[in-house]
Nucleic acid binder design. Structure first.
Lengths: 217, 217
DNA sequence: TTATTAATTTTGGTATACCAAAAACATTTT
DNA sequence: AAAATGTTTTTGGTATACCAAAATTAATAA
């Protein structure tokens, strides 16, 4: 099996399993990887032989310790690169993902070490996602979704759960960037839409968008 | 044909053809790419269909205008990354090639533009090799080999033609780095070895090593 | 519980990039 | 010019990652 193929499967299994809490179905994997389920069946069988996943017929797939370690390393590389592209090279947070998707496959510990060093060993990437450390440890946070916020409170934007360029551009346009402070004016019972002030401007946010914004008290 | 495969063939043809001055034999290509000649025959046929090389049976291969443009772009990406790794991240010039070999395959004009900008649009990489500009133009120099130097003259080291880590480490140990000034004391008629002073220390250099060092008056 | 639907796996097949060995073609040497 | 050597191409074959369609197995609804 090719290095890139393995890495894409492990990474996707990791993401779909919620940090390895659940097993992942072939169908879900197939959708994310843009292949048909039959292809996934073949692949996970091979990953099983490589001892990177636990796999039982018609049950589901989950990462082994080794597999999880590899997945975390890929996630680390991806997020370090995203941070680097945004911080050092001035890319917008809607642009970094696509480039990092390619950069993440370059396995060179010294390279990532130097990048991380230069960035001051960050724990979160430009989207607010946590960056695993060299040992795969993830700094966990007490973040909540904007849709779960309490009215009349002030929060700081910490990240997003939707990484589509259209959403990120929408946020940027409204200055809803990482680190921005928002005051929750009200939350509609009717449709869950949130009205808040950010940089002295009042903005109404749909419940769908609010569910994709991560904030911290 | 896969992107990476195409790029590796074009790059190698470019290097072996001396900037497209000569046609390249299958045997030479096979050796550099570490495949057998039969594989090269198949590949160049496909590259021919893609209009990236001119190819006639049992004659040799040369890049088309399109192919050369692509090759130059790959060389540019490679050398920009090498410079970046050495200058911004502090890698040794013996380490950068291997990493750049992977980074070069990421095609993103904006990325390379930003890197080049940050570096002040350099014309030469850490090995002294010229970096093609966005249009593929190469700044040519009046450099000569150390083995062609005149005695009693002072030169500046501009680059190397051998990129093996062992040679580069040898140079670094003797402070024979890019930009260093050397005074040629003598050149032996007998074996072509060069005696020079660099940073007040006298060093004797074999003819073989001298042929791999590029200098400028 | 049986029927229906959904997910998974099996089977047969494709394209790519490679190789080994044989055949064809070029180039040297004698 | 013929023989020997070297290079290139052809031929037949492998492994990978994929797909389409059929067959199996699991989950859900009637």
């Amino acid at each position: 099996m090719q290095k890139e193929t393995i890495e894409n499967y492990l990474k996707t299994i990791y993401h779909l399993s919620n940090g390895n809490a659940q097993v992942v179905s072939n169908k879900a994997l197939a959708e994310k990887l843009d292949v048909i389920p039959a292809t996934v069946t073949e692949a996970v069988k091979k990953l099983h032989v490589l001892k990177l996943v636990e796999y039982e017929k018609s049950y589901g797939t989950r990462l082994t310790t080794t597999g999880a370690k590899m997945a975390l390393d890929i996630v680390r590389r991806h997020r370090i690169w995203e941070t680097y592209l945004a911080t050092e090279l001035g890319f917008g947070w809607d642009e970094v993902h696509e480039i990092a998707e390619e950069l993440e496959h370059i396995k060179n510990d010294k390279l990532i070490k130097k990048l991380s060093e230069k960035l001051g060993h960050p724990h979160f990437d430009p989207h607010g996602d946590p960056i695993p450390d060299e040992k795969g440890k993830i700094r966990k946070s007490n973040f909540i979704k904007l849709s779960e916020a309490k009215p009349k409170m002030t929060y700081t934007i910490m990240g997003v759960t939707d990484h589509s360029p259209s959403f990120l551009k929408y946020l940027e346009k409204n200055k809803l960037v990482i680190g921005a402070n928002v005051f929750i004016k009200s939350i509609e019972d009717f449709d869950g839409s949130v009205t808040l002030t950010c940089q002295k401007k009042e903005i109404a946010i749909s419940s769908k968008a609010a569910a994709c914004l991560i904030i911290s008290a």
